[in-house]
């Protein structure tokens, strides 16, 4: 019941109740809560704040001691050169991430439908076996996967990442869709069955039209996790610059030798984070739904 979960989180309790005259103790607690929330806000926002203010001070404008302060004037000098280095890897990332997310969503929706509404003998057990795949450390499959990629002839191409994210995304995408479809009333499907509709037709005409929010959730989940992924990228591309993606290119820029160029590094980090941040800003609710669905219980 993932949709209910999100509603639960985002439903603010009836605030009007708080409006009733608070006594002294009540007022104290309200002030206390705001102070605590603000402190947590400062801590949570600090790392991104630093990134943003230091990205507009130019390449050499970042003095160590003033890095907490906003710039005296805006200088986008670091953006041009950094973007020049990051443009190609980011385009490459977008290319493979879009493919892997779309395939993942289709696969997840088919699987989710079966595990939620068209169970067969042993399907719960198989689903549990799928779920285990969500928890495994990818180190435990990395070497055979590299060999598979060579054997399949996709070694050295960006498709290694498409394959990795689609396959290892099966458990989570199936889980998200299964939880999503579980909320659809069985009567809807029973009625269609009585009318003689088969599985494929029920899926196509009843389930799919109801699936758009589920697709959004899985698409942005897979988009965010593949965009931010570093482990698969560095293992499967071996750090080859020809196959650099957003995170590996960024790691190359900010890597050990260049740690002193803070203006540059912060700008590069910010540029790489912009796509996922935008998705989060505009589709945060769906992102939250993915997170909660991915937690199994509920």
């Amino acid at each position: 019941m993932s949709s209910d979960l999100v509603d639960r989180v985002t439903q603010s309790k009836d605030i009007s109740r708080n409006k009733k005259k608070l006594d002294g103790v009540g007022q104290f607690w309200l002030v206390f809560r705001y102070i605590a929330l603000t402190i947590l806000f400062v801590i949570a926002a600090l790392p991104i704040y630093i990134m943003v203010v230091n990205s507009v001070k130019g390449i050499t404008g970042v003095t160590q001691s003033a890095a907490f302060l906003p710039p005296s004037h805006l200088n986008f000098g670091a953006w041009g050169p950094t973007w020049k280095v990051l443009r190609e890897p980011m385009q490459r990332t977008l290319f493979f991430v879009l493919q892997s997310s779309i395939i993942s969503a289709i696969v997840g929706s088919i699987n989710g439908f079966v595990f939620a509404k068209w169970k067969f003998k042993g399907s719960t057990f198989i689903f549990t076996l799928f779920l285990f795949g969500m928890f495994i450390p990818y180190q435990a499959i990395m070497i055979p996967l590299t060999q598979f990629n060579h054997w399949a002839g996709i070694g050295g191409t960006i498709y290694v990442l498409v394959v990795a994210h689609v396959i290892y995304g099966i458990p989570i995408c199936t889980l998200i869709f299964r939880n999503y479809y579980a909320a659809i009333p069985n009567e809807l499907i029973e009625a269609a069955r009585v009318d003689g509709a088969g599985m494929v037709r029920i899926f196509r005409t009843i389930i799919l039209p109801l699936s758009i929010p589920g697709f959004v959730v899985v698409l942005i989940w897979q988009f965010t996790s593949a965009w931010n992924d570093f482990l698969f990228a560095i293992f499967l591309t071996g750090g080859s610059p020809k196959l650099a993606v957003a995170t590996t290119a960024l790691n190359f820029i900010t890597g050990s030798g260049n740690q002193v160029y803070y203006g540059n590094n912060m700008t590069a980090s910010l540029i790489v984070s912009i796509p996922t941040l935008l998705v989060y800003m505009f589709l945060g609710r769906y992102f939250l739904r993915g997170l909660l669905s991915g937690s199994l219980k509920g």
């Binding site: 109740r17 790392p47 990134m51 890095a67 965009w227 960024l250 900010t254 790489v272 996922t276």
Partner: peptide, 30 residues
């Protein structure tokens, strides 16, 4: 429930949306 809850909630949750290779730059400096 508290006024401004949605704002606080989204600020507390945004770190999940960013890669650690990017956030590492800030934290290394901090």
């Amino acid at each position: 429930g508290i006024r401004g809850e949605g704002f606080f909630r989204s600020i507390y949750l945004y770190p999940m949306a960013i890669s650690f290779i990017a956030m590492g730059t800030s934290w290394r400096w901090l």
